[in-house]
Design a protein around this nucleic acid. Sequence first.
DNA 1: GGGCATTTACTCGGATATGATGTGTCCGAGTCACGGGGG
DNA 2: CCCCCGTGACTCGGACACATCATATCCGAGTAAATGCCC
Lengths: 162, 162
Amino acid sequence: MKLSEGVEWAAHCCSILAALPDGEALNARDLAEFFDLPPGYLAKQMQRLAAANVVEAVRGRSGGYRLARAPETITLLEIVEAVEGAEPSFRCTQIRQRGPSAVEGARYPRPCGIAVAMWRADAAWRRELATVTLAELARRGQAETPDAQIARAAAWFEEKLK
Amino acid sequence: MKLSEGVEWAAHCCSILAALPDGEALNARDLAEFFDLPPGYLAKQMQRLAAANVVEAVRGRSGGYRLARAPETITLLEIVEAVEGAEPSFRCTQIRQRGPSAVEGARYPRPCGIAVAMWRADAAWRRELATVTLAELARRGQAETPDAQIARAAAWFEEKLK
DNA sequence: GGGCATTTACTCGGATATGATGTGTCCGAGTCACGGGGG
DNA sequence: CCCCCGTGACTCGGACACATCATATCCGAGTAAATGCCC
């Protein structure tokens, strides 16, 4: 079980977008440059975020991406599910109903106990992710970043948004 | 994020082994036949369970696999980690320290806030899995299975263990 | 008949192919800003 | 001077290659049982 690389990128990009002046948008190429990531592939992640209504795509000449909603209303779970998909991590293939001992057409409880346990753990994981809002992430992110980098980043944004 | 198919197989196989008479072992080929699974690949999962000290391999002529410990002391988490690996699902690549705004040699808190949140969720997932013992799974499994199948399975084991 | 060395058949374990999925790249459709011309 | 329209350049969006890991398979190393022989 391994999360896609894009999850980390998406979370950081959303964190950046949350720090942007209201209404301003940043395009995929600039975001990629900011984090030194492959531009095309990051664009794909941003598309997914847009499809999930986490960010909003502004098309046209000075377009880009901006948050679709207030950062207090966006959870980390939404970001993860946007990139990774919302399907549960465990898929029950009902192997207990196969093999030589299986009874054709017998009545089984829909989900087997193993699947139930796995899904319960999956729910706990999602519940935890849902408690974290993008606003908190952005705030913590700023607090954690050295002042020197904050200044350089601000100057960089100034340049790009001009 | 998707769990490997082998997790389901391993859990069901352990559940079967828990129902076996004390000391008896069942080999990979028979287990595969019981669930109608590819024998060679299931064998690999069993090897991992053996390496993680969940099951015990008995080599030689009438060998096979049996539980390494009492089913009450084996958790679903152990089974999952044996197959899937114990590495956390999220890997922080520190992308915030890259790109044009990065400050060489600056002091960063070891893990960024995003990684912390992801790891917290990961811990919740594992905590939930750790609350389920193999004994419970086996008990629920028997309760859920139609009587007719229990009988056929018992006869099948009788044949194989003979 | 009992004990022991040998054979034998059966087991696990790791090295080796194949396929699906994540990763990375590209080009086309769509849209807004800009600039020029007319009123 | 203001408004409108055509042009252009820039954006996102989805279609197209490549790499990596999960899936599936095979054969060799090792072990316990069975067998046959000797005492």
